[in-house]
């Protein structure tokens, strides 16, 4: 291939956000290198649609490459909720790599990403509890607290835990927390820094393995993918899939460390969740996991096996690190 192809990526996050600066930009470099400079991806100055539209932007060819959150389009993606359940793991790298592996093994055949060329999947670091009011050491501390959440399983879990869920987009967090409309957020540590919340948040409670997670996709317009040469396609896939999950997961983990440092500097009091609280969360989450397994069954997927495989894979990866 001699002709140069330029692909347009639409990003709904600001250029300095870790996803853009530490995951997309390096990946774009890798694509360029792997294709010997024949595939060039540019990030548009502004998104071509709202965050939830980014799956359709790639499907309809409005943009060539996009990334997004499965949970932003409720009702569309069921199986990807496997990556949203509590206690998955302590590192985004392990979760994301394991996620791609079990996706290929169990979930891909259900074809939930029909209409796009799926390039990669990932999750952020373990989601935790942060608030401006009091240390959370039991479910009683959480009762009635107004928590901003981003949708997906965590929304139902928040309500089940006795808190009041305010479902608003992530960029609204600053407005909600700084004005006191919300008392807290469920976020990975990274987001406390990137949404500038450290000066308002006073308390953090860390749940081992994470309270929740968010499932992301990286996708491409299928016609644009088909138009590339076989060599170019292979080159792109060689730096996507599990390779991307590993690279992005490491970046998430670094961003979480930076978030932790930011909170320490701001004097946020961070504690580990006591055993009773973890037990309480597990009890509330169990029926939700059961409901997911039942729903997955209707799509011909053995959800129970998926979750077991997923957790075993994560444990294996975390142990090997």
């Amino acid at each position: 291939a001699s002709a140069e192809t330029t692909l347009r990526m639409s990003s709904w996050l600001p250029p300095k956000h870790p996803i853009v600066a530490d995951m997309m930009v390096p990946w774009i470099e890798e694509v360029k290198k792997a294709t010997n400079g024949s595939v060039n991806i540019i990030i548009l100055p502004k998104a071509l649609g709202a965050a939830p539209a980014h799956f359709d932007l790639a499907k309809d060819g409005i943009a060539d490459v996009t990334f997004g959150v499965h949970g932003y389009q409720p009702g569309r993606f069921l199986l990807t909720q496997a990556a949203e359940v509590p206690f998955l793991g302590n590192s985004s790298e392990a979760i994301s790599v394991a996620y791609w592996r079990i996706f290929e093994k169990h979930l891909a055949k259900a074809n939930e990403h029909e209409g796009v060329k799926l390039l990669a999947l990932m999750t952020h670091g373990p989601g935790q509890m942060f608030n401006t009011q009091r240390p959370i050491t039991s479910l009683a501390d959480l009762a009635g607290m107004k928590i901003r959440v981003g949708g997906g399983l965590i929304n139902d879990l928040t309500t089940a835990l006795g808190a009041t869920a305010l479902l608003k987009p992530a960029p609204a967090s600053y407005e909600l927390i700084s004005t006191g409309v919300a008392d807290g957020v469920f976020f990975p540590k990274e987001s406390i820094k990137s949404f500038k919340l450290a000066s308002f948040i006073k308390y953090g409670t860390v749940v081992p393995g994470g309270l929740y997670n968010v499932s992301f996709f990286l996708a491409m317009n299928p016609a644009k993918f088909e138009a590339l040469t076989k060599a170019e396609q292979d080159a792109i896939m060689s730096v996507s899939g599990e390779h991307f999950a590993k690279m992005a997961g490491q970046a998430w983990d670094r961003a979480d460390k930076a978030g932790q440092a930011d909170m320490e500097a701001a004097g946020v009091e961070i504690i580990d969740a006591p055993e009773a609280l973890v037990q309480g969360i597990a009890e509330k989450a169990a029926p939700m996991e059961a409901a997911w397994i039942a729903a997955a069954k209707e799509k011909g997927i053995d959800g129970d096996m998926v979750l077991k495989d997923f957790r075993a894979e994560i444990a294996k990866l975390e142990a090997s690190n």
Binding site: Q73, P74, G75, R76, G151, N155, L167
Partner: peptide, 10 residues
């Protein structure tokens, strides 16, 4: 076709 619903009240 996608069964798009709202997040909380479905």
């Amino acid at each position: 076709g996608y069964g798009d619903v709202t997040a909380i009240l479905h």
